[in-house]
Design a protein around this nucleic acid. Structure first.
Lengths: 213, 213
DNA sequence: ACGCTCCTGTAACTATTGTTACCATATCCG
DNA sequence: CGGATATGGTAACAATAGTTACAGGAGCGT
């Protein structure tokens, strides 16, 4: 179990901190679809992602939903940071995109380490910064891009975090994550298939050419 | 000049920190339209807003623009925090919405205070959290709302930060900040006028009923 | 007053996205 | 096997937003 933390965070934290994390962290596995954090909930332990990918979603009042960004190995969600530090409710939902592991850290340790370890402080700030930029990126997507581009981006990102050119999602699921409707997604996917960028099968989509040519 | 800082930040920082801020800060006035921070630029001093309002904009590659949120007295922009701490380029543009004052703090002091003052640490985290939530709010706006609602929100927010029910902006300016086009904004404003929510004059719009009834 | 620029109104059209409806087939389960 | 459910294809239509074009009036400087 120490190996896991060392592998994922070895390049980020100083040795003494790694040891401390290993001693206090509880390694928890999660499965695809698990809701790790939900909107309106308080967070009592902070998760550090060891393996797998987590998607961060925003929900609207009237059942609208939107994928904001993915989190991968070595990352954490700044929302959990603020929630832990400030005792606030979560504004986002975190859902497992695939199977993986998290190291759960008691909130008390977080603040302790803020004063004790420089690498921890740097990590916390880096996390905030990354999440901020990912939100900006999400804004760029929905504000400046059309649905077909957003769809391609989504397929590309999903392919990346799942390490596969084959995406096992239904049109309905994709529509939900992009806050669109199934018919629209089917239409656009069909167009992408005609352009030779993807191949479609039941329950899966294969990316033929990556979005970034 | 000490009075200004005490007035704006008296409830936030401990006395010793307030004194230190007063001694090192350079008070700088700004005028409506001033570009305080621009995309791609490095930031060498951190601004604390004393009076006035600043709008934070995001820009697209092909000349699209979008207002993300406003910053008011007692706030700072988390982008400047990360830029200062991490020596990174700004991803956003900060433009003065009206006239006001900022206290400019040398970057070195920021890090010094992080270890020295608990209220400073709390403030920095609170700022990050506020900006994060404001970005989420911006996402809600563009992802889940139609242009007419966004327009009403915009008018309401603008009215608030300018302390006036009269908004001195042209349709073109509003269109730019909402990343729309002038014709669309004119059309929607006309509809809002028919609904009795606003009154229009050349170069100004009066909010008759606040958006939040 | 004259010409110029800026601001706004409006029409007509296009593009994009969302909605509703219906169908075909695949898959799962009893 | 037979029926229920999930998934995807497609058409027709509606709603929203963006584009182009043009006109009228306000304000400004000469």
């Amino acid at each position: 179990m120490e190996d896991l933390i060392h592998e994922a965070y070895g390049g980020i934290f100083e040795p003494a901190l790694l040891d401390e994390i290993s001693s206090v962290a509880k390694i928890v596995p999660f499965k695809e679809g698990d809701v790790l954090i939900d909107i309106g909930k308080y967070i009592k332990t902070m998760p550090l992602l060891i393996s797998g990918a987590i998607k961060i979603m925003r929900e609207d009042l009237d059942t609208g939903e939107l994928l904001l960004y993915f989190i991968e190995k070595g990352d954490t969600c700044s929302m959990t940071l603020t929630c832990c530090m400030g005792d606030k409710k979560s504004e986002i939902r975190a859902v497992a995109e695939n199977n993986g592991l998290v190291a759960m850290i008691p909130v008390g340790k977080m603040e302790e380490w803020m004063g004790k370890y420089k690498s921890w402080r740097a990590y916390v700030f880096e996390s905030y910064n990354n999440r901020f930029n990912e939100l900006l990126n999400a804004i760029d997507n929905i504000a400046f891009m059309h649905m077909d581009e957003r769809l391609l981006n989504y397929l590309s990102e999903t392919s990346k975090v799942n390490n596969s050119t084959i995406i096992n999602k239904t049109h309905q699921e994709i529509a939900n994550e992009l806050n669109s409707s199934r018919v629209v997604i089917s239409r656009l996917l069909k167009a992408l298939e005609h352009e030779g960028k993807i191949k479609m099968n039941r329950n899966s989509i294969e990316i033929v050419r990556q979005a970034k040519d």
